[in-house]
Design a protein around this nucleic acid. Structure first.
Length: 472
RNA sequence: GCUCCCAUCGUCUAGAGGCCUAGGACGGAGCCCUCUCAAGGCUUAAACCCGGGUUCGAAUCCCGGUGGGAGCGCCA
């Protein structure tokens, strides 16, 4: 049997971190067993579903590289099928019409709560042998309810939580089709998972309580229930639940913060899952090693510091071309022209060790791609002094005389310059940094000047000299 | 309220009864290296929620408590 998993978000917002991890686990599990992974848009709630959200989810999935093996599926395009199954169940007696109004049900719930009972449908329209049903009120469109077994138990063998037992007495008859005829969530999932041959349902653990009902519906349909894996949720760093109001960010916002998609995946896969002490995984390793035996049942917190660290590991080691694509995106976002400067890969090679994010890298590389917009105040005060002006002026001449503008030549020139003057390299390099980069932080000075190029370097040295002299 | 889930350093976790005087990683502290910032190397502080059992032996199994969380919609 080939494994088929699915990621089934409802398009009511962007793809958040928890959803991304669920998608990743589903994807990895399918790939691990040479199976298929599909994306299904659960848009049966037409009030809340939006096209923007659908697009946002696709965008997030694409950025992360979680490709579906099929075209996306929309539940709204499967209404005929759901109706067909509802009719089937009605005919089989596993579902029935219920004419209770919303007001009526609300009152029922209120009464039950007051009596400290679990609020649930009381089965007033549920057909029983020998029971006389009320007469349907005129002009009321009924909903369709599933006839849940009255007793017995449902055992969910959850891949992460183990065996969970539910008493059927705790389950009421849920609505599977609204008065307007549209199907509801719990029903659509069941029909879809069944029709699409889903073998493993991997989802957030806020769904565990739905699982026994879904299993009952499946059984009423004569279908074999899939395996379930309920993954616990991801909390904010303060341990509070993530929500739009509280720190829930879309995956694309992590892109804006400067994360590599591969790093994001790596951080996410380790959140709740482990493989011994291993922290870093290639895409292939994730696929080969992922399993539910080592998925934690308890919720975990999103730790930004660790995420940054993982990202940094990727920046330090990933293929330059791969990084360049994202780096380019960030430069443009800062209104910089990637073409107006050194080769991106060469810049990345020099900056990758000192930046935890691509955003940071772009910001620290501005001076390679645009004219200086002034000097960092503190750095200039410290390093662009009257005496360093003399130094920089001499350096300007020395460097201008260089026959070749390459790293060894620049290295020799700057070091030799410092040596002949009996100065430590720092005394020379720091003023150059501020002059050429606008600040006292940059890659090694020889590399920096090389990448900056002769023209820009010499011009900036001259500008710094007059700047230093202009301040009294 | 009812049902269900969860519980190892601040955080992510290793740990499937003896290998645990509890390991790794992030973050923290300190030292070394150093042209800046980093990176790197070394050292260090830091945890089995509590109480009962089971067992020769429990972080690991069972029960109870406590504390968190989820669900209880004609939402998904």
């Amino acid at each position: 049997m080939t494994v088929v998993t699915r990621f089934a978000p409802s398009p009511t917002g962007f793809l958040h971190i928890g959803g991304a991890r669920t998608a990743l686990f589903s994807y990895l599990y399918a790939k691990r067993f040479g199976g298929k992974f599909l994306l299904r848009i659960e848009d049966t709630d037409r009030e809340r579903s939006t096209q923007e959200a659908v697009d946002a989810i696709f965008e997030g999935m694409a950025w992360l590289g979680l490709k579906s093996d099929f075209d996306e599926i929309y539940q709204t395009r499967r209404f005929d099928r759901y109706k067909e199954v509802v009719q089937q169940m009605l005919a089989a007696g596993t579902a029935y019409h219920c004419y209770a109004s919303k007001e009526e049900l609300e009152q029922l719930r209120a009464e039950q709560m007051a009596r400290k009972e679990k609020p649930r449908y009381d089965g007033r329209w549920r057909p029983e042998p020998g029971k006389t049903l009320p007469t349907p009120p005129a002009g009321v469109q009924p909903v369709v309810r599933f006839r849940n077994p009255a007793d017995g138990q449902v055992v969910v063998r959850d891949l992460v939580k183990g065996e969970i037992v539910f008493d059927n007495r705790e389950l009421d008859d849920l609505i599977i089709a609204r008065a307007d005829g549209t199907p509801t969530y719990n029903f659509c999932v069941v029909v879809d998972d069944w029709d699409m041959g889903i073998t493993h349902v991997i989802r957030g653990d806020d769904h565990v309580n739905n699982t026994p009902r879904q299993i009952n519906i499946l059984q009423a349909l004569g279908a074999t229930p899939p395996a379930y894996a309920h993954v616990s949720m991801i909390l904010g760093s303060d341990g509070a639940k993530l929500s739009k109001r509280h720190g829930a960010l879309g995956v694309m916002e992590y892109r804006a913060m400067g994360f590599m998609p591969e790093a994001m995946l790596n951080y996410l896969v380790r959140l709740g899952w482990s493989h011994g002490d291993q922290e870093l995984f290639t895409h292939e390793e994730m696929i080969a090693k992922f399993d539910f035996d080592h998925v934690s049942a308890s919720p975990s917190r999103f730790d930004m510091e660790k995420a940054y660290w993982v990202n940094h590991q990727y920046l330090k080691t990933a293929d330059l071309g791969l990084i360049a694509g994202e780096f380019d995106w960030h430069l443009r976002r800062l209104n910089l022209d990637p073409a107006n400067g050194p080769d991106l890969k060469a810049v990345i090679e020099q900056q990758r060790e000192r930046c935890r994010t691509l955003l940071e890298m772009a910001e620290k590389s501005k001076f390679f791609f645009a004219d200086l917009d002034g000097y960092n105040e503190k750095d200039a005060a410290k390093h662009l002094t009257a005496e360093s002006a003399t130094l920089l002026e001499a350096l300007d001449h020395a460097l201008a005389a260089l026959p070749d503008w390459d790293v060894p030549a620049l290295h020799a020139a700057v070091n030799g310059f410092a040596e002949t003057r009996g100065l430590g390299l720092g005394k020379v390099a720091q003023p150059i940094r501020v002059a050429c980069c606008g600040m006292a932080v940059s890659p090694p000075i020889d590399q920096t000047l090389f990448l900056l190029g002769r023209e820009r370097t010499l011009a900036r040295l001259k500008a710094a000299v007059s700047f230093a002299r202009s301040k009294t």
